[in-house]
Amino acid sequence: MAPPRGDASAAAEEAMLAQLEKRPVCTILIIIAMQTEALPVVNKFQLVEDPNTVFPEGVPWVRYHGVYKDLNINLIWPGKDPSLGVDSVGTVSASLVTYASIQALQPDLIINAGTAGGFKAKGACIGDVFLASEVAFHDRRIPIPVFDLYGVGLRQALSTPSLVKDLNLKVGKLSTGDSLDMSPQDEATIIANDATVKDMEGAAVAYVADLLKVPAIFVKAVTDLVDGDKPTADEFLQNLATVTAALNETVSQVVNFVNGKCLSEL
């Protein structure tokens, strides 16, 4: 007797993932929300902008691509908002661009890189770069049983013990919301999430990556201390350039470490 359709589908998916873990990573998708954060990585790997977009007509999303060692690298920046001309930050753009990029490019691994706020109470300092162990939302409050868990949307990042050890990276939990500031309600959920860093895209990328079964890691550099004594916006802008350089260096190290390795070796 043939197994139920659902069981057969799950078995095929597990077999596919097992096969992926045994072959070297070939195609990397790097998702970065801000142009200031993206361009140093573009320049580092000598990526070029794709004039023939793989995305739907009219969207502002930008793809940079190139070959580095044994890797096909695709860096996707969501572009500027067509009406206001600012970077298309936040969970909506991140979700859409992650979904479209996976569909078009079929990556073996996603790297979501960017700046983030850090919590000094959890040991974060300006300029620290963290690899997220897990990601969750802090601004999707649905106080109904089970829906509350859906709102938090806790997901594990790809486990990369060798990468963490080799690069001596700090590891912490990442919490995501669509506001730069932090309301008392957000703060309570962030504490419940046991987060060391907070951003505006990570958990959205993780949701889509999990949905489409693409492993993802999250590299976040601290521009501001959320529980510090300086206004968040001022501190973010003051440190953005310096911290972006640290982010670029770490992303470069991560890419070099991934080259030639399969997922199980990370």
Rank of each mutant, 00 (worst) to 15 (best):
T98P: 05
T98C: 12
A100R: 15
A100E: 15
A100S: 15
S101Y: 10
S101M: 07
S101V: 04
S101D: 10
I102R: 14
I102E: 12
I102G: 10
I102F: 03
Q103A: 15
Q103P: 00
A104P: 09
A104T: 13
L105G: 05
L105Q: 06
L105E: 13
Q106M: 12
Q106P: 00
Q106A: 15
Q106Y: 12
P107V: 14
P107M: 09
D108T: 14
L109E: 06
L109R: 06
L109V: 09
L109T: 04
I110S: 07
I110M: 14
I110W: 04
I111R: 08
I111P: 06
N112Q: 14
N112M: 07
A113K: 10
A113M: 05
A113W: 04
A113V: 10
G114P: 11
G114H: 08
G114L: 09
G114S: 07
G114T: 00
T115V: 13
T115D: 04
T115E: 04
A116H: 05
A116C: 15
A116R: 10
G117M: 04
G117H: 03
G117N: 04
G117S: 05
G118F: 01
G118L: 04
F119D: 06
F119M: 07
F119G: 01
F119C: 01
F119R: 02
F119W: 08
F119E: 05
K120W: 10
K120A: 14
A121N: 11
A121L: 13
A121H: 06
A121I: 10
A121P: 00
K122H: 09
K122Q: 14
K122D: 01
G123Y: 09
G123F: 02
G123W: 04
G123V: 03
A124C: 12
A124W: 00
C125Q: 12
I126V: 13
I126A: 02
I126L: 11
G127N: 05
D128A: 04
D128S: 00
D128G: 00
V129L: 08
V129C: 06
V129D: 05
F130E: 01
L131S: 07
L131A: 07
L131G: 04
A132L: 11
A132V: 06
A132F: 10
A132D: 11
A132H: 13
A132N: 14
S133C: 13
S133Y: 02
S133F: 07
E134N: 15
E134C: 13
V135T: 15
V135W: 00
V135H: 09
A136M: 10
A136K: 02
F137I: 03
F137E: 11
F137M: 11
H138V: 06
H138S: 13
H138P: 00
H138D: 07
D139M: 02
D139K: 09
D139G: 04
R141I: 15
R141G: 02
R141E: 10
